[in-house]
Design a protein around this nucleic acid. Structure first.
Lengths: 203, 203
DNA sequence: TCCTTTGGTGTACAAGGTACGCCTACGCCA
DNA sequence: TGGCGTAGGCGTACCTTGTACACCAAAGGA
């Protein structure tokens, strides 16, 4: 047993998140993370195979912070609660959204989330390809929301630009964009998810 | 009026798409596109401000290839048709999915798509923030689907891995992943969208 | 005490985006 | 028809980033 490791995965993740939260995703470089840890750049490669593996650690960590304990409520309410927790967990580090979208499938921590979702859906009576579609649609909805929120928030500059388009060219869009500016993200998520859940309930 | 331009935007886009379709998104570099056009690398910068602007041209082109003519059918059917056309347009160049997700808001060609969606929703009786939410949910669903399809296709390796997990650890997931492998993308999209549309109809 | 096994570091290289400055071709106007 | 001004086109060079490689260092067991 020679020289023990001096860094833990948690330290790697903490350093990466510190960089990302402070300076944005573009600043997430091997050099920056190494500097954050007070280590030489190449030292990181004793802990991760490459940059992609580091990103995966970060995403996995975000998933693992999600509490899976759910009350004995309806399956819809449990889905609501669980997805909202995921949304909040990601929102704590807004800049990692692209990483979550890229690596979610490879992150082991996502498995327990999916299993828990499937438990709720199974209680709701879903089986076979219906359960597949239900789960996929819910995850897709979450990913789409994160995507929307990150690259095109309702309260962001894109909405403002659209609301200022000529009503002659885009009458509905200009009007709707103006309406959109007052919808906060959590309301958008809640009401959007309700739409999907209504669709799932009304089989 | 001095020396005219020798390249059109369409040529730029065609070259970029040729590179991406042939060698994948990672191969989309300024050097590669320039080579494809038989031009020096820096020559591209007379036509686009930077790489991001080139990507935007590509995304915009994909959006503009979507036919907006819709039959006089129900608003749900028109939404179905339009979103499916977008899905197909993107699927013609699978590797551009990440670009579409990144640039959709900045691409002018997306405006006409949104306006057309809003026409259908307005015919369906949606107004105010309900219309905002409906449009947002539909777009989010499309984006989530593209995301799912690109990074975690039901027929892809990730599903196989999940289907081979120990049923002791992930009983529902292992089973559901096995069920999932037989669902083709177009069926997934159609049935997923039907869920959302049912949710929208049942206000 | 020394040896083996890893951990840690510095150097170096390849790829890619792009700033800069020069040359060149075109089309207008005299 | 010839010269000129405005952009187009190009080559070079630099910076950033990921990472291969080879060497040094430390720590624990024999």
């Amino acid at each position: 047993m020679p020289r023990p490791r001096s860094l833990t995965d948690d330290q790697l993740v903490a350093a990466a998140l510190a960089v990302v939260d402070r300076d944005g995703l573009a600043a997430l470089t091997m050099r920056a993370v190494a500097r954050e840890l007070g280590v030489a750049t190449m030292g990181l490669y004793r802990y991760v195979a490459d940059r992609s593996a580091l990103e995966l650690l970060v995403v996995d960590h975000v998933f693992r912070t999600v509490d899976l304990e759910l009350p004995d409520s309806s399956w819809e309410d449990r889905i609501r609660l669980l997805l909202d927790r995921i949304r909040v967990a990601v929102a704590r580090h807004p800049a990692v959204v692209p990483l979550v979208l890229r690596h979610r499938q490879a992150a082991p921590g996502s498995l327990r989330l999916i299993e828990t979702m499937l438990e709720a859906l199974t209680d709701g009576g879903f089986t076979g390809t219906e359960r597949v579609l239900a789960q996929r649609t819910l995850i897709g909805h979450l990913l789409g929301f994160l995507q929307n929120e990150h690259h095109a928030a309702l309260s962001g500059p894109g909405t403002i630009v659209m609301s200022e388009l000529s009503p002659d060219d885009y009458p509905l869009l200009a009007r709707t964009a103006a309406d959109a500016r007052s919808v906060p993200p959590d309301e958008e998520f809640r009401r959007g998810l309700d739409i999907v859940l209504r669709g799932l309930s009304s089989r």
